[in-house]
């Protein structure tokens, strides 16, 4: 599966490695951000869609 990459690079291997490298760094940065998020904040964020502050909320329509 990987042979086809290495065989087709035509001397521009640096490009591929460079690109994968940036992705790797990027991925690490995002992961660090994720680890640093507090649980309470995550809960607040995931509840956002469920509370839309309507008066006479459409909730009454739900079964």
């Amino acid at each position: 599966m990987f042979k086809q990459f290495t065989e087709n690079i035509n001397g521009n291997q640096a490009y591929l490695l460079f690109s994968l490298g940036i992705f790797f760094v990027f991925f690490i940065v995002v992961s660090i951000m994720l680890i640093r998020i507090r649980k309470s904040h995550i809960e607040h964020m995931s509840d956002l869609p469920l509370e839309d502050s309507t008066i006479n909320s459409t909730k009454s329509l739900e079964p």
């Binding site: 087709n8 690079i9 035509n10 001397g11 521009n12 591929l16 690109s19 992705f23």
Partner: peptide, 15 residues
Amino acid sequence: LPGWAQSLGVAFSIM
């Protein structure tokens, strides 16, 4: 299309 550009596209598509 130059081969390296194709390879780049393939690698990222798989990811």
